[in-house]
Design a protein around this nucleic acid. Structure first.
Lengths: 213, 213
DNA sequence: GTCTATACCGAGATAGAC
DNA sequence: GTCTATCTCGGTATAGAC
């Protein structure tokens, strides 16, 4: 038997720099929040996934809610890095298509962001208010403006900006976000070529070019 | 005065028949599960919304998981009542369109079902396995068969059955399921005419008829 | 057969050791 | 400044009264 004092705490965790720990927690939080939603996810599991103890989350992020916001901010900044140049406003059809492709590639590589957004989308909450005001409205405005320019140039399908936005976020991105369900339906199997087919189909609908495939 | 034995429990609840109570619990559960997901919803809140006490749920449904399944079964049976005749397999374009319209009207009237499905769609779980096997796969098979007949008759857009399914459930139904988010984006305001516009746009994409609007 | 009182567990947050 | 030990609360499930 070991000493009678206490059950040895499972503390094999190596001491890391604060920045590394925070990065690890953000990554773990993205996975857990995307899988179970804000209320469904537990900070204990997030900490465990990151190889940390639960109270370290409260120390580094103050509260579960702040951790959630930091996670969303982080994922959006990753997306912005991928979509660099979009704010300039692509006015040619090809430039617009290139941005859409980048968005869908990002959604395929990081399905967590769309999952987190969709999990919050069904019910009013302070988080939804913050998400819309901070991240979604500015981006929706940018898409609307770009779409208006494109249409003015005689390009794109006969759809409103709202319809384009909904098609992109629901049909476009959900294909990746809902992969667990779709794969059980036999609809897709994560292959890279399958993603490309889906992306081109999405572009076909938006740009009203009939795909040859 | 009642007896002096105990602090009177807040038991203003009128005694109801078992069937009424079960129906009330199912309705309350649909709202709560749709808003917060399985883990996020609490049986306390569900019971409270139905004017019952929490342990009554365990009595009538055994467990939270069983309550969830009963709720999904109930919503699907409501949908089947609306879509009566679909299994017969509509082969004409007009019959197919009529079924699609019914589906979208149901989704607008009962957004809870699509919300519950989407909240489960992002992560593997016993519930997702059950949902797909019990409810989604048979319906997907029916849609696939109907779509194949339609395409064989030279009707419908150049889309696979999987794409039709995804368009219907994501773009089509999500418009209603994600109303809290969309309304904050200024995209829609629940009006009946707005729903009709969305429905016709969905049909336009699927049936490749260019809407005049 | 049905409901109330309550047990028990896991959640997030804090206090205080280091 | 950072982490561990611990508190409190709200979660679901059960035991036993009616």
């Amino acid at each position: 038997m070991t000493s009678a004092t206490a059950p040895v705490p499972a503390r094999t965790r190596t001491r890391r720099s604060s920045a590394d720990l925070v990065a690890g927690l953000l990554e773990a939080a993205a996975v857990e929040f995307a899988a179970h939603g804000f209320t469904g996810a537990s900070t204990r599991r997030i900490a465990e996934r990151a190889g940390a103890h639960q109270p370290q989350i409260n120390y580094h992020f103050t509260s579960k809610e702040q951790l959630w916001r930091a996670t969303v901010d982080h994922l959006f900044s990753l997306m912005d890095a991928t979509l660099a140049g979009f704010d300039d406003g692509p006015s040619t059809g090809e430039a617009f298509e290139a941005v859409l492709r980048s968005f869908l590639v990002f959604s395929a590589d990081h399905p967590e962001l769309d999952r987190i957004i969709n999990l919050e989308a069904t019910a009013p909450s302070p988080r939804l208010d913050w998400l819309v005001a901070t991240h979604l409205l500015p981006r929706y405005a940018a898409v609307s403006a770009a779409w208006a320019r494109l249409r003015a140039a005689g390009l794109g399908a006969d759809l409103t900006a709202a319809e384009v936005w909904e098609l992109l976020t629901s049909f476009g991105a959900m294909h990746f976000a809902n992969a667990p369900m779709l794969s059980r339906l036999g609809i897709h199997g994560d292959s890279r070529s399958e993603s490309a087919v889906h992306t081109e189909r999405m572009l076909g609908i938006l740009m009203a070019t009939t795909p040859t495939g």
